Amino acid sequence: MKMFTKSRLMAVIATSAALSMALAGCSNPTADSSSESDTGAQDYWPTATQKLDGVELTMWVAQNSNKIPVKVVSDFEKATGATVKLETIPDPYEQNVQTKTTTGDTPDLAFWQPTQSMLAGFIAQDKLQKLDNAPWVDNYTDGIADAGGVVDGTRYAALVSTPPVMGVFYNKKVFEKAGITDIPKGWDGYVEAAKKIKDADIDGVESPLFEMGGSQWGTQYSVQIQLAEAAQDGLWDRVNSGKEKFTDDTIQTAISNYKSLFDEGLYNKKRWFRQGYR
């Protein structure tokens, strides 16, 4: 079976992408068709379990996520007879991937952030296979199909499992001892709950909040959670275009709010209230 109609096309997928879905997209012989007349061919997709005996595929994965696709790769190999090699690219993943693809070294599939800005460079180089009209999109939970991977109306990514989200885990027993009966809502409720836990002076609880800040990259989440609504309203587009700065009120306020949690002694001694990447 002819896998690609271009030379080594690369299907880019999110860090929580469905390998079997993406591979089905890669085997679409019409993805590079320039004909507008044959609509039947344009909409053709092989089945997810189509036999691919003898086909060998390479998928690039990051060091911190190279276990995510193992199960779906195994299932896909059993269902199709294809062989998928997972190749871990050293950190910093994004920079190394971009360097390799610029020199002509491309995989069949790769983990990637499916945002418009992150996909733009690959789209400009015409290195992504289009996944339009993919039948598996209808199997997504409502709202997931729009979570990423679509640029200017064209789909370039396949999401596999639940996309990473930002949120908070909490200890129910500690909440009970602090007299917190309702789940906090919004940033103010979050801070109020942390203060109640601190004031309750619960035995064994040295501080109410914890985050995986030792590796530094996780410290972005308290700030980004506060900016969620602003991001939906185009905050990062304004920042990227120079219309808004990190030092302007919106982002600076979120950073100051985050810093205040440390100033008030609310952070990082025990894992009773853990925040971060999930």
Rank of each mutant, 00 (worst) to 15 (best):
F4G: 07
V191C: 13
V97N: 02
A120I: 03
L9T: 09
S161T: 13
W217R: 04
V151H: 03
K269W: 06
A194F: 10
P46V: 07
V72C: 11
L266H: 05
A22S: 15
G143K: 09
V61F: 03
D132W: 04
L209G: 08
T15G: 14
S20G: 13
K195I: 10
I251T: 01
K177L: 15
K127G: 08
G153M: 11
P163H: 01
I89C: 09
A82L: 08
V150C: 03
W217I: 08
T102I: 06
N240A: 07
T101Q: 03
S117L: 06
D132R: 07
Y93H: 01
A17K: 10
D53S: 14
K67I: 07
E87V: 15
Y277E: 03
T30S: 15
A254N: 10
D142M: 05
L131V: 00
F122I: 01
T250R: 04
Y44F: 15
K100G: 00
E94W: 12
V61D: 05
Y156W: 04
Y44W: 15
M1D: 12
K78Q: 11
D182P: 01
G189D: 07
D108F: 12
Y156Q: 01
W272S: 03
M59S: 12
K127N: 10
V223Y: 05
K177Q: 15
T219G: 07
E192A: 15
T15H: 14
V191P: 12
D32W: 10
K270A: 14
Q98M: 13
N268Q: 11
A231V: 03
G218F: 08
T80H: 02
N66D: 10
R271H: 05
W60V: 07
K130E: 03
G121D: 08
T30G: 10
T30E: 15
A194G: 13
K85N: 15
T49A: 10
R155P: 06
R274F: 07
D182T: 11
C26L: 15
L52V: 00
N171S: 11
Q224N: 11
